[in-house]
């Protein structure tokens, strides 16, 4: 490097047309300028016309077999088919899900917060599949709850609970609830709403279990804000379902009086 530098330095001093010489060297040595002449874009289908790469397929196989075995192993038995539209304002599967969250979530919440869950409010749209009659397995739980949502318990004053009741009545849908009782007339006017068999007290703080999705205004459930406290249980709703299925032999949820239109 030093020699080259010195050599060129000498050259420069000696030469009369120094500049042109250097420029000439520079241009010759330069990487040729590249131009993009043509750009061609297309979309290729990944479908049955392609023959699978066997080494890739063989690599996947043991993983697939393990998952399928695990997903398909029987955990419980459903006596009937349960779906979210089998009732007007409460459904079999909705009642089941809300009750499971109450039942499985409460011991964790009681241990951590030294308080009890008063109510559960989920959303009708969050139930993504039915529970078909027959064997219930982890795949059932994945189908019903494919999302990664987890339980959060929100401390809400009675006046916020009343907003929740308004939301549920306005929705006229079987949003899953537990621990609450809501009765409306045929015009969907509230007759009464209760938590723990008692009227809702504006000043009291109630602990409502829901999903992190709904807590963050999912399905426009704005009544979770403002709140008194939020407790994340680090427990995914799908795992709550799986753990419950493991504990019981049969699944047989029913429609009941928790959210109904009063019949005269």
């Amino acid at each position: 490097m030093q020699n080259i530098k010195k050599f060129i330095f000498d050259e420069l001093v000696i030469h009369k047309h120094i500049l042109s010489t250097v420029v000439l060297i520079f241009c010759f040595s330069c990487k040729p300028k590249l131009n993009i002449q043509t750009i061609e874009g297309k979309r290729l289908n990944i479908d049955t016309t392609l023959v699978e790469d066997t080494s890739v397929e063989n690599f996947i196989k043991p993983y697939r077999i393990h998952i399928e075995k695990d997903l398909d192993s029987a955990l419980a038995y459903a006596l009937d088919t349960y779906h979210k539209n089998d009732g007007v304002l409460n459904s079999t599967i909705g009642n089941l899900m809300a009750d499971i969250i109450m039942k499985e979530g409460n011991p964790i919440f009681q241990k951590r917060a030294k308080k009890s869950i008063d109510a559960v409010i989920l959303n009708h749209g969050g139930i993504r599949a039915e529970i078909p009659k027959g064997i219930v397995n982890a795949r059932t739980a994945f189908n019903v709850m494919p999302f990664e949502n987890e339980i959060v318990v929100v401390g809400l004053k009675g006046n916020q609970i009343k907003k929740a009741v308004d939301y549920l009545i306005k929705g006229r849908r079987a949003h899953p609830i537990s621990g609450m009782e809501i009765v409306v007339d045929s015009d969907y006017k509230l007759i009464y709403a209760k938590i723990n068999d008692e009227p809702i007290d504006n000043g009291k703080v109630y602990y409502v279990a829901t999903s992190d999705y709904l807590y963050n205004n999912g399905d426009n459930m704005s009544f979770y804000q403002p709140n008194e406290s939020v407790h994340v249980l680090d427990y995914k709703i799908r795992n709550v379902l799986i753990d419950y299925f493991k504990k019981v032999d049969t699944i047989n949820p029913v429609k009941d009086q928790r959210f109904v239109i009063k019949q005269y």
């Binding site: 040729p32 300028k33 590249l34 131009n35 993009i36 002449q37 043509t38 750009i39 061609e40 874009g41 297309k42 979309r43 290729l44 289908n45 990944i46």
Partner: peptide
């Protein structure tokens, strides 16, 4: 979900004639 694969081909040319640097796009 891996339903498709995108493919974009770029054809490069050495710029022998600096005036011809227009790019044709075929999509």
């Amino acid at each position: 979900y891996g339903l498709y694969l995108g493919q974009i081909d770029f054809y490069f040319d050495i710029d022998k004639n600096s005036s011809s640097n227009a790019t044709t796009i075929i999509v």
